[in-house]
Amino acid sequence: MTRIVLFASGSGSNAENIARYFSGNSAISVPLIISNKRDAYVHERARRLGIPSFTFSKAEFDEGSVVIDTLRTYEINFIVLAGFLLKVSQPLLDAYPGRIINIHPALLPKFGGKGMYGDRVHQAVVEAGETESGITIHYIDEHYDEGDIIFQATCEVLPEDTPEEVARKVHALEYAFFPEVIEKVIAKTFV
């Protein structure tokens, strides 16, 4: 059994979608959700799903040991970032090499990097006059949004689309593809 932890900083809609997708799966489970924000709505989603959730400070994530100890307590094999806004620290990268993936709400390498998340990305896509956007699922490395790309899916951006409309289209791609891609990556990683 592969045990994944979901890291989330906000609402947690992707985290909930992933947890529900793997509920009852005999090969993959989601026994833990972690956030860097005590008031993030993801904690309420975790509570309703019956999944323990914890909050750690940026300093605790940077230093790593208390987070890694918690992951080991829950026998976590794989980390999935689902709307997690902190840069993953070197101790976590060292503890989970090649076993941390992220989803980004644009087609990397465009519209990535520090500070490019959520609505900021969709606003930038619209302002740049892009005709398409989408999602990128990628491995995490020591840089923001630069790890090897695993999967991309696209959606059309119409000239009249607002950032909110682009966000709606991108969220639909996230919900449709992220859990399936996680499952495929885990199948390849833990052969």
Rank of each mutant, 00 (worst) to 15 (best):
Thr2Ile: 15
Ile4Val: 14
Val5Lys: 01
Val5Asp: 01
Leu6Ser: 07
Phe7Val: 08
Ser11Met: 05
Ala15Gly: 13
Glu16Ser: 11
Ile18Trp: 00
Phe22His: 10
Phe22Ser: 12
Ser26Lys: 11
Ala27Phe: 06
Ser29Tyr: 02
Pro31Thr: 09
Pro31Asn: 10
Pro31Met: 09
Asn36Thr: 07
Asn36Glu: 04
Tyr41Glu: 09
Val42Trp: 00
Glu44Gln: 14
Glu44Trp: 02
Arg45Trp: 04
Arg45Thr: 10
Ala46Arg: 02
Ala46Ser: 12
Arg48Met: 12
Gly50Gln: 08
Gly50Cys: 08
Ser53Thr: 08
Ser53Gly: 09
Phe54Val: 07
Thr55Glu: 08
Thr55Cys: 15
Glu60Phe: 05
Phe61Tyr: 14
Asp62Ala: 13
Ser65Tyr: 01
Val67His: 02
Ile68Ser: 06
Leu71Gly: 07
Thr73Gly: 07
Tyr74Phe: 15
Ile76Leu: 06
Asn77Met: 05
Phe78Ile: 10
Phe78Thr: 10
Val80Pro: 00
Gly83Asn: 04
Phe84Gln: 08
Leu85Trp: 04
Leu85Gly: 09
Gln90Trp: 03
Leu92Phe: 04
Leu93Thr: 10
Asp94Tyr: 01
Ala95Phe: 03
Ala95Ser: 14
Ile100Phe: 03
Ile100Val: 14
Asn102Gly: 09
Asn102Met: 07
Ile103Thr: 14
Ile103Ala: 07
Leu107Ala: 11
Lys110Ala: 15
Phe111Leu: 08
Gly112Pro: 02
Met116Leu: 12
Tyr117Arg: 10
Tyr117Asp: 11
Tyr117Asn: 10
Gly118Asp: 07
Gly118Pro: 03
Asp119Leu: 11
His122Tyr: 04
His122Asn: 11
Glu127Trp: 00
Ala128Ser: 15
Glu130Asp: 13
Thr131Trp: 00
Thr131Cys: 04
Thr131His: 05
Glu132Phe: 04
Gly134Glu: 06
Ile135Arg: 01
Ile137Val: 15
Ile137Tyr: 01
Ile140Ala: 06
Glu142Ala: 15
Asp145Arg: 10
Asp148Thr: 12
Asp148Lys: 14
Ile149Asp: 04
Ile150Gln: 05
Phe151Met: 12
Phe151Ser: 12
Gln152Thr: 14
Ala153Asp: 11
Thr154Leu: 03
Thr154Val: 12
Thr154Ala: 10
Glu156Tyr: 02
Val157Lys: 00
Asp161Pro: 01
Thr162Cys: 04
Pro163Asp: 09
Glu165Thr: 14
Leu173Ser: 12
Glu174Asp: 13
Tyr175Ala: 14
Ala176Glu: 15
Phe177Lys: 15
Pro179Ile: 10
Glu180Cys: 10
Glu180Asn: 12
Val181Arg: 07
Val181Gly: 08
Ile182Arg: 06
Val185Pro: 00
Val185Cys: 07
Lys188Asp: 15
